[in-house]
């Protein structure tokens, strides 16, 4: 009993009454903080780390990103530089350039989405800042093979799978913690 006083425990009557009252308060007040996901989805901040791709023209094929990638998700694909400055697959480039001066060989990164952890180390180590971010993040593929795109496939940023949903942004709220308001 002395222990109880020293510790300021609530007695049974007060404790039960307040617990029930608080429960009831939450029962009647509007206070949901859930995001109703596929119906609403978040408009993510521009600095969100989602799927990303590489700018084919900027990249110089230095392999720094491959080297830094912690889960070794990046593979460097051999490519050749076309006259327009874009790259072509090796065979295609070779046949086009046949006879002319030898095609300049280069490499381009491809990310295995099944391994990538979105740490964005590759992003930050790139000496020419060639990566392009997007904030699409809620995407899953059906097959293992789909996680490993070809370079052409990798260049296309994936589409937002919940494009049709209502876009909301989180705002701090005194009652709910987070309130999702329609995105501006």
């Amino acid at each position: 009993m002395k222990d109880k006083e020293k510790r300021k425990l609530r007695g049974d009557v007060e404790g039960n009454a307040r617990a029930l009252a608080t429960g009831f308060k939450y029962l009647v007040e509007p206070n949901r903080m859930t995001l109703d996901y596929p119906v609403e989805s978040m408009k993510l901040a521009p600095n969100y780390r989602g799927f990303f791709t590489v700018d084919d023209k900027k990249c110089i094929g230095c392999s720094m990103c491959e080297m830094v990638c912690p889960p070794e998700a990046i593979t460097m694909i051999p490519r050749v530089v076309s006259p327009t400055g874009e790259t072509l697959p090796v065979q295609e480039g070779a046949s086009q350039e046949a006879g002319a001066k030898p095609a300049k060989k280069t490499k381009r990164p491809v990310v295995n989405w099944g391994r990538c952890i979105y740490c964005y180390f590759c992003f930050d180590i790139c000496p020419v800042d060639a990566f392009v971010r997007s904030n699409v993040h809620d995407l899953a593929y059906y097959n293992d093979a789909d996680y490993r795109p070809s370079y052409e496939g990798y260049l296309k940023l994936p589409e937002d799978p919940v494009k049709k949903s209502k876009k909301v942004v989180p705002r701090p709220d005194m009652k709910r913690g987070i309130k999702y308001e329609p995105a501006p």
Binding site: L27, N31, R32, M33, D36
Partner: peptide
Amino acid sequence: KIAAKVQMRYGPL
């Protein structure tokens, strides 16, 4: 539903 309401979520939906 009641538990969900107290717990600030939707419950079965």
